[in-house]
Design a protein around this nucleic acid. Sequence first.
DNA 1: GACTGTGAACATATTCACAGCG
DNA 2: CGCTGTGAATATGTTCACAGTC
Lengths: 215, 215
Amino acid sequence: MTRRAVPASTVRRLPLYLRALDELAERGVAQTSSTELAEMAGVGPAQLRRDLSFLGSHGVRGVGYDVEHLQAQVAAELGLTGDLPVVIVGIGNLGHALANYVVEAGTGFRVAALVDADPAVVGTRVAGLVVEDVADLVDVVRRAGVALAVLTTPADVAQDVCDRLVAAGVTGILTFVPRVLQVPDDVDLRTVDLATELQILAFHARRRSLARSGA
Amino acid sequence: MTRRAVPASTVRRLPLYLRALDELAERGVAQTSSTELAEMAGVGPAQLRRDLSFLGSHGVRGVGYDVEHLQAQVAAELGLTGDLPVVIVGIGNLGHALANYVVEAGTGFRVAALVDADPAVVGTRVAGLVVEDVADLVDVVRRAGVALAVLTTPADVAQDVCDRLVAAGVTGILTFVPRVLQVPDDVDLRTVDLATELQILAFHARRRSLARSGA
DNA sequence: GACTGTGAACATATTCACAGCG
DNA sequence: CGCTGTGAATATGTTCACAGTC
């Protein structure tokens, strides 16, 4: 019956567990085990049990976990109450793709607004929403009470948009822009960068080919 | 003059350093320091020095680092020799966006082929390339000698495509598909998932609002 | 004098192995 | 008996602080 202080490494895996639980629930499975869940999530059983123990004891010794109960626990821990509003800034190909993704996948989020700077894009309909002008960014975010933002703008305006998102009260930003961004300590910034990911793969690919020729 | 075994955590940061070095080189700066580079990369100076020490001693005590030399060292360590060919499978909005990104950003990669299953997409031109049929996937990958792949297909075909990429000799896969994929131990798999990232942000956003009301 | 490179201290994360419980 | 929950062992990652070198 542990409580509080869920480690960051555990938080990163909770979405994986939630997806596995969703799939089990979908299939009508009522009970599961650490072995089965771990398998589905691609982690070890000990890791899964340790991770879940930070949320409290929800399993039954000798039996396993109740799928629905655990699903609710994990969702609650992640703060997925109802549909959280998200704003997407920068509606190029990438923003477009992400907007559709959020709308389609039922993962606890709702696109509250789409924002762009290009007059040719502002006013058009994307994923069922009218794209708004970046000039109104702060108003739009405040009015909709949005806490989370996705950033897919060109690199040179990213810091400016970021500053305005923070000013409007956003506390979490997911950026796909290949630029280091500055945010206050009380704002959470996560960066996804294609070039970075490919370069990491390149490192391991090279290592493998060296090992092959060197052995 | 340490050698070999660069830790995974260091590898994840090398692309950041490379980008900072590229920017310095662009600006014509010839010398830099751990403090300056660390600042640009958004890490601490001690961390940066420790990371670079795994690549060998390339700095000069009392002076700092030679930008061009270090740039070459980091690029070499990442295996960025010339332009590495990459295949992108799944040319929806996301694949489209990623294709353009790789072509435009000069980050050491080259799109060798685009592949899709939709007859309406196959044969069209995207980012300067003709989209090829997924039926020819193995041939295309083998012929072009591609080692790295980006996966942006629908979830239900991802494992199948993944298996065929592996069969064709790909050793690194970057997937944007929200599904756990199985690959052999000698293949490197990196997963980027929007829903997962948003859920992690949601966790911290909730934590913050609890702290605010609880304090 | 100034800045790197690194041993040593610390912090975090993973895995093992088994006691505890239904 | 079977499976969870967790102490203890291990492995990995970060930070400090200073000796070494230009």
